[in-house]
Design a binder for these strands. Structure first.
Lengths: 271, 271
DNA sequence: TGAATAGTGTCTGTGAGACAATATTAT
DNA sequence: ATAATATTGTCTCACAGACACTATTCA
């Protein structure tokens, strides 16, 4: 018996056939319109996510991300798309793998590893075919030194949680997230939400993924609003227009009737 | 029976108890010294990865990344560290989750989902306790329009593969990798290697992870060499020094005996 | 006319790319 | 002296931040 074989037996034999359950969870982002406080002003925009109310144990009556078990005949992304279709009737959504969450006790029933996906949609393209237990929540996020305070609101119910953020190693940009306060988010989904928000915040500036959240035609003001709610800060108009210029294409359409100067509608321009 | 429950039953019931196997695979990067072709010149550096020769089926006699099954009592990262320890005797390695690979037929035995980790080490800190079936391979990478040609060499054996790279969606930076040619890499590990190389290439410029591959003391020339082999291109000295300046700290040590002007040794400076 | 957004012009400072110049060592 | 790397200086260009200014609409 060689040393390799010895190590193999020593380390793997006892548990070789243990198999965790694997789920695919989807963090679906969109932008919602708020009310128009004044006929001259633009409608306020909100950053929002889709949650599902649990009606079975565990975490009964709490909210969670749409998700479900992965079949052996599908990839985790295929599972995500199947689940999304079944809960929101949405097809052809932009999806990217976010992170694999695997805390040993994240699900009280059994060992469950969750491969999470981040999705972006234009909520307005969605026909109103959400099932009754699914709902869009507007996000309010406040970040200080070490923690992130999130409030989610669907007009009916408010969910709040606080996540503590710690750098995993001094050399990297990876964070460890710990849930400090949480009333109504099931599983470790509060962490998934924060992780996805950070991913989106980063990627919005070096990819074109934001256009997956836009309709076909949009004004640069609307596009800027979306950047601003995702980044959580105001941007300067000329700088924004310079940066975005190469990614959009002017159309001959114009948005009028807004109580102020009309705005040219733009389209996404693939490079 | 409400629509939610109906959907639940329709979609999940049949396969609810299917459980895939889950493995954790580690892509361990380091830098190796080559020969000194001339007493004045610096030693050439190579970018290298650790592979293990398979001595059982499937893929017997091919090479793969160190990896193994995840136990239900450990996270995938804990599994990665346990496996690394058992195969290389390495502790306290920098590790970050890379991606979860889940093609349905990536393992001919059964459905296996692999959560891959990328690790960075200074090969010289490693005592020579690699098991006989593990070996460091130097990487040569050539990239053109649409494909990446990789050659791996451990001084004894050469592995070659070609990966075709296609953008997954027009709005993003995510690629789909297809193995076009491959003689000796087991499973889908050729894809994992390419995926990790791209991740490292990106992150080297906006994090400090490269210092996990360096010894405690190094010259700026050596550090620049490491950047150059990872990025696959020459950098200009003054620009490199400007960028790196805030991350390193001058020491009073000096490297002499090189056939040219001696060089100050630097240390990593945490911010 | 006034309040609001749309859209443009321009100044300034920062920082990367490029190249030049100087310093120091072993043979 | 020479070949090699080490280290610094500086010019220029691109571009982001900042602010000012003009344009246009509806009540």
């Amino acid at each position: 018996m060689n040393s390799e074989e010895k190590t193999f037996l020593k380390n793997y034999d006892a548990s070789k056939y243990e198999r965790p359950s694997v789920t695919s969870d989807i963090l679906l982002f969109s932008v919602s319109d708020g009310v128009q406080s004044n006929y001259r002003k633009l409608k306020k925009k909100y950053f929002s996510i889709l949650l599902v109310k649990r009606n079975t144990h565990p975490f009964k009556d709490m909210w969670c991300l749409p998700g479900g078990f992965v079949k052996n005949t599908e990839t985790t992304e295929e599972a995500a798309r199947r689940i999304l279709k079944s809960e929101t009737n949405l097809d052809n959504v932009y999806l990217e793998q976010l992170y694999t969450f695997d805390d040993i006790n994240r699900d009280p029933r059994t060992r469950v590893i969750s491969v999470s996906y981040m999705g972006l949609v234009d909520k307005n393209k969605l026909d109103d075919t959400l099932y009754e237990n699914a709902s869009w929540f507007n996000i309010t996020s406040l970040e200080d030194e070490k923690s992130i305070h999130i409030t989610l609101d669907n007009g009916n119910e408010q969910l709040k949680f606080v996540i503590k953020k710690t750098l995993k190693e001094k050399t990297t940009d990876r964070y460890k997230y710990d849930v400090v306060e949480n009333n109504k988010m099931a599983f470790d989904h509060a962490k998934v939400i924060v992780c996805g928000m950070e991913r989106l915040k980063n990627k919005i500036s070096y990819t074109d993924i934001v256009f997956n959240m836009m309709g076909e035609y949009f004004t640069l003001g609307e596009l800027q609003q979306v950047y601003e709610i995702i980044l959580g800060k105001k941007l300067l108009d000329p700088a924004f227009r310079r940066i975005i210029a190469s990614k959009v294409e002017k159309t001959d359409k114009i948005k009028i009737g807004e109580g102020h100067r009309p705005s040219v509608l733009f389209k996404y321009k693939k490079k």
